[in-house]
Simulated scan of single mutants.
Amino acid sequence: MMRAGRIAALAIAASGAIAGILCVAIVYFGWYDVSATSPHRAVVYHLMDTALARSVKLRSADVQVPELNGEERIQNGARLYSTHCVQCHGAPGVAPQPYALGLNPAPAALVATARARPASDIFWITRQGIKMTGMPAWRYRLTDDQIWDVVAFMRVLPTLSPADYQHMDDGQPPASTDHAPPDSLRLGDSVAGKAALHQYLCVTCHTIPGVTGAWNHVGPSLAGMADRPYIAGAMANTPENLQRWLRAPGAVKQGTVMPDLGVSEQDARDIAAFLYTLSKRDR
């Protein structure tokens, strides 16, 4: 019996090794088609859907759902949806924009999502985003109250005809997208700042120690940021000045190629806190 068990274990290990080698070969020799015109295999879609469902269920379990039936909340959610969501997900009688039609995997039809998922799941997905789908984390662009407004609107979305949707899309701007008021701001958090560096695309231009991202960098490395005497050669390297630079680089240094990315005050505090952990003396 023990001999049979060992043989079975060896067979499983050998199968796993062969499968691993095969996967490496498929990637290394370019056999896997990464083009967006080639859909994933059915097994890949199934794996992604299963991972999404289980991950969201685990992480949204403690989300507390507020009252979502207020007309004002639903109306503001409709405006936010029209401003930020319809371009990829469409709406009754409204097709997604051309760029969204080429995404792979395709953006979900949110009418179906609103029918199939509880409000807590929709809030978590909207707030946190989903990797490898093109779905961004809206927590860096909208407040939690605004995200709940979107959820409130999505709950009524399945009931709307094209005419109903056009009526709700009244062309008015959504309520202010300002983030936390000054009295609710906290001290900078380096862990939150490290996460925010991805959300503001810092890693697409800069090499940042300890932060993974694109390899084709166009800006200077941020290694040793804590030790530098100046920021962009324009002002003394202090936490307050670094936050100013992150939020409005063009106002600090005229003609800079660093764009204004709409960094919130709290996110600027967090990013600065992380960048000040990057010291050459710690190497």
Rank of each mutant, 00 (worst) to 15 (best):
M1L: 04
R3C: 00
R3G: 00
I7T: 10
A13R: 08
A14N: 06
S15V: 02
A17E: 04
A17I: 07
I26S: 07
V27C: 04
Y28D: 13
Y28C: 01
F29G: 03
G30V: 02
W31E: 05
A36C: 00
S38K: 15
H40K: 14
A42P: 07
L47Y: 12
M48W: 06
T50R: 14
T50F: 10
A51K: 10
A53V: 04
S60V: 00
Q64E: 14
Q64V: 13
Q64M: 11
Q64S: 10
Q64Y: 03
P66M: 05
N69I: 00
G70R: 15
E71V: 05
I74P: 10
N76Q: 11
A78F: 08
R79N: 07
L80Y: 09
Y81E: 02
S82V: 03
C85D: 03
H89C: 01
H89Y: 03
P92L: 01
G93E: 05
P96M: 11
P96G: 09
P98D: 04
Y99P: 02
A100D: 06
L101E: 06
L101C: 01
L101Q: 13
L103Y: 14
L103I: 07
P105T: 02
A106V: 10
A108W: 08
A108N: 10
A116F: 03
A119N: 12
I125R: 15
T126F: 04
R127W: 07
Q128A: 13
Q128K: 15
K131P: 04
M132A: 06
G134A: 03
M135N: 10
R139Q: 11
T143A: 05
Q146M: 05
W148V: 08
D149N: 15
V151N: 09
V151M: 09
F153D: 05
L157W: 13
T159M: 05
P162W: 11
H167L: 06
D169L: 02
D170Y: 12
A175T: 04
A175F: 02
T177L: 09
H179G: 13
D183N: 14
S184E: 15
L185K: 15
L185I: 05
G193Q: 12
A195V: 08
H198P: 01
Q199P: 03
Q199S: 15
V203S: 11
V203T: 14
T204H: 12
C205F: 07
I208R: 14
I208V: 12
G210Q: 09
V211A: 13
W215S: 11
V218P: 01
P220T: 04
G224A: 01
M225V: 00
A226Y: 13
A226G: 06
R228I: 00
P229H: 14
Y230I: 00
A232M: 12
E240Y: 08
R244M: 02
W245S: 12
A251P: 02
V252P: 03
V252S: 07
V252E: 14
S264T: 15
Q266N: 11
D267Y: 10
D267V: 04
R269I: 00
I271L: 05
Y276L: 04
S279M: 05
K280G: 00
